[in-house]
Design a protein around this nucleic acid. Structure first.
Length: 735
RNA sequence: GCUGCUGUAGCGUAGUGGUAGCGCGGCGCCUUGGUAAGGCGCAGGUCGUGGGUUCGAUCCCCACCAGCAGCUCCA
């Protein structure tokens, strides 16, 4: 016998092998009808699974359409239904993976005839037939070798590969059958297809088999499903609403920024209003840094290539950088040559052409530094040895004067640290700069302000003694948290980025990594922070703690980051003189509370739906005269407020005030001042608030005080209709 | 970078193998007003760029550029 503990605390005895469906039936007829799956000891299982293994008691819960876990089961089943429909319409299609997602599901499919967006309605139509038939999902198991034969006979090559690669260690594998459709699947599933109350196929996109860009690209069909139409409609409506706060849309509407193909992809042009917001944020940070003992520095936008070879950035991220600039034009050529050689893309003809070019140059150009002839000799001597050829070219390139548009500020800051000797008494040294960096991000990655090719980090590098690490690192976590909370950005998650033990992309000694990772983990633990430790998310020189937020369509972006680095100090041979009068190696902390100003402002636009709080609003107050007769009075008010440091504009167009108010409202101006006959004669203004509407008449002094207080406290009043979507989103993504 | 889709006036959009409409915005005139759109009129387009097919291309084909969604990447 098994003892089941039900959610209400009551206990029930059932024989071993009883099915959840039977338990549900014994609990009540309606419950049995509503049952989707069951949760046994926190594991979601089919209604037809057998209850076993009752050492002590099992916690048992019937899941219905009220439970979140049931929705995930439904979506997974809907993915199967979609796959079944696709197999009917696209014979020969092969299935890869088809999981449920937070908000829906997908299935990766490799079809001999590509599936197009126009095909989605047909597939939906077929799915509706399957759902109407309401056939059950039947689970069965096979020993692994038989399972392999079965999927092979079904013509499902990806499933065969999946078994060979990942599932061999299991003695048996499970399948689900639904009519003619059989799929290798762990489950669980809803009892029958009819449980899918509402669904919609949303899009098709490419996705690599096993998420590996070197493997075949499949078609990923996305969809979502709910228990009823109302929930689906609500979800689709919410998607539409979320899109309205897209920073790319609002940035254009509110004239915050623009991107011009004439300047280049991923390069942000800050328009006056956006620049105002950015400037205020910069001031905000600068003030904080001053309080926290940082020292400002400025460094140039380019640096010697050699510097970035030493730091490792150039070799590690070569493809993601703008190509180096060589003072001698031959440098570019040889650099291209080397890049082709290293990536195995150098054809014989190209190689011959390069050789000829270098030879000619050696003869005719008298200004080529670094003896091209000797390089040619070494290259020829290398024969077919790729590494030696590369060495020859590198040796020549190393003697060229070359510069890199900086992809990172740290090497520059390190040179400032190195410019003078340091005593342990000086440490920590905290060098801060709004450093603009350039990275050649892949075209497919560019997105508004959130993923760009040129951006400004609110960067700083701390040089500390080993004893200071914890305190300084912790202080920086405080700074990031302070910044986020000052802006009401509470919907973020904390990620501890650790190295991936499988990968060789990391520099430095294992023991340093070990030490650094332990420091970070114990720090977040002792602070009681919610975090997820993720392997493979570290920087190449050290582990880090990132603050990650979502944009209006649910994509995650890293904002603030604090990173611990034992390795660059070693690469650059940094020192300080300790108490013992001997040189010691400092440790570096890299950190940026905003991350990049571009991305941060982009996320802020979405967070506030364009309605910035008063202290950030590019235009804080707009004076709106009732008619042109009150222009002079309006301008007097403007000047008065301006003299108090507020950002003010006046709208003196010959339009009715309703029109002008509407416009100011749409432009998200926090305060509108209506002035007419009454106000002029009483020396007052009528104040209209963006959130609360008409506040009535006020003296200028009263208004100034109100504005001052609101700015000083950096009050965030506006999490109103416009940003309601965000809290909904927060709730939705809460787990 | 890869897969798919898109590109028409400043913005949002309609449309067609015979060189283009609408709304908002802009400009002008009338209206001088009291808290989310007053009226009339005018101007504004090499239909992303470059090739090709065709008697003729904004429309069909190719390449490039840019954007969107997803994948991969992200110091």
């Amino acid at each position: 016998m098994l003892t089941l503990k039900l959610p209400d605390g009551s206990v029930r005895q059932v024989p071993e092998g009883t099915r959840p469906r039977e338990v549900a039936a014994s609990l009540g007829k309606r419950l049995a009808q509503a049952a989707i799956a069951a949760k046994v000891n926190d594991k979601v299982v089919d209604l037809d699974s057998e209850l076993r293994d009752g050492n002590g008691e099992l916690s048992f819960q019937v899941l219905t359409d009220k439970d979140k876990e049931a929705l995930a089961v439904l979506r997974h089943s809907c993915a199967h239904i979609m796959a079944r429909a696709v197999l009917r319409l696209f014979p020969g299609a092969q299935l890869a993976f088809g999981p449920a997602l937070e908000n829906g599901f997908y299935y990766d499919i490799d079809s001999p005839t590509p599936i197009r967006e126009e095909d989605l309605p047909r597939i939906e139509e077929e799915m509706r037939k399957i759902i109407a038939a309401a056939e059950p999902f039947e689970r069965f198991e096979r020993p692994t070798s038989e399972a392999r034969e079965l999927v092979r006979d079904l013509g499902q090559g990806y499933k065969v590969e999946h078994i060979d690669d990942d599932l061999k260690q299991y003695p048996t594998l499970s399948f689900y059958r639904q009519g003619e459709f059989i799929d290798l699947c762990r489950g669980p599933h809803v009892p029958h297809a009819g449980k899918v109350g509402a669904f919609k196929l949303l899009s098709i996109a490419g996705a690599y088999w096993k998420n590996d860009a070197s493997r075949k690209q499949l078609q990923r069909l996305y969809g979502t499903a709910f228990f009823n139409q109302k929930d689906l409609d609500a979800y689709l409506h919410q998607l539409e609403e979320a899109k309205k706060r897209d920073h790319r849309v609002l940035g254009k509407q509110l004239k915050l920024f623009t991107i011009s193909p004439a300047v280049g992809s991923g390069l942000i042009l800050w328009m006056p209003k956006g620049a105002t917001v950015r400037g205020i944020l910069e001031g905000f940070i600068k003030e904080e840094l001053l309080k926290r003992g940082y020292q400002p520095v400025y460094t140039p936008h380019i640096g010697r290539l050699e510097l970035y070879r030493t730091s490792g950035h150039f070799p590690y991220y070569r493809d993601a950088q703008y190509p180096p600039l060589f003072l001698h034009q031959l440098g570019q050529t040889v650099d291209t040559w080397l890049a082709l050689l290293e990536s195995d893309q150098l054809s014989e003809q190209a190689e011959a052409a390069f050789l000829k070019l270098l030879e000619e140059a050696g003869k005719t150009m008298t200004d080529v530094p670094g003896e091209p002839a000797a390089t040619l000799g070494r290259y020829a001597a290398a024969g077919k040895d790729k590494a030696k050829k590369a060495e020859a070219l590198q040796a020549w390139l190393g003697r060229q004067e070359g510069y890199l548009v900086k992809p990172m500020n740290c090497p520059h800051h390190i040179q400032i640290y190195k410019a003078e000797p340091h005593s342990y008494r000086d440490l920590p040294v905290r060098l801060a700069e709004f450093g603009t960096v350039y990275r050649f991000e892949q075209t497919g990655e560019l997105a508004g302000m959130t993923r760009v090719r040129g951006f400004t980090q609110d960067d700083a590098h701390l040089f500390v003694t080993p004893e200071q690490i914890e305190e300084e690192f912790s202080a920086n976590l405080d700074l990031v948290l302070f910044v986020l909370s000052s802006l009401g950005l509470n919907d973020y998650r904390v990620r501890v980025g650790l190295r991936d033990p499988q990968s060789d992309k990391y520099v430095g000694k294992a023991e340093n990594w070990e030490k650094a990772e332990q420091t970070l983990l114990s720090l977040v633990q002792s602070r009681g922070m919610n975090f997820s430790a993720e392997k493979g998310e570290a920087a190449f020189y050290g582990p880090k703690i990132d603050f990650v937020v979502r944009d209006c369509i649910g994509r995650e972006w890293q904002l603030g980051t604090v990173q611990l680095d034992y390795n660059l100090p070693e690469r650059f041979d940094l020192e300080y003189i300790g108490k013992d009068n001997a040189p010691h190696r400092p440790v570096m902390i890299h950190r940026a509370p905003f991350g990049s100003l571009e991305r941060f402002v982009g996320i802020l636009i979405e967070h506030f739906a364009g309605a910035f709080p008063l202290w950030l609003a590019p235009e804080q107050v707009r004076v709106i005269p009732v008619s042109e007769r009150f222009r002079e009075y309006g301008q007097r008010i403007e000047n008065e407020l301006r003299s108090h440091g507020f950002r003010v504009a006046g709208d003196y167009r010959p339009e009715k005030i309703g029109y002008k108010i509407r416009e100011a409202q749409l432009e998200k101006v926090p305060y509108m001042l209506i002035v007419g006959e009454k106000e002029q004669s009483a020396g007052t203004i009528s104040v209209r608030d963006r959130v609360d509407g008409d506040l009535g008449a006020m003296s200028i002094a009263e208004l100034v005080k109100r504005l001052h207080d609101e700015v000083k406290e950096r009050r965030i009043r506006q999490v109103s209709t416009a940003s309601a979507g965000l809290s909904e989103r927060g709730a939705q993504f809460a787990d």
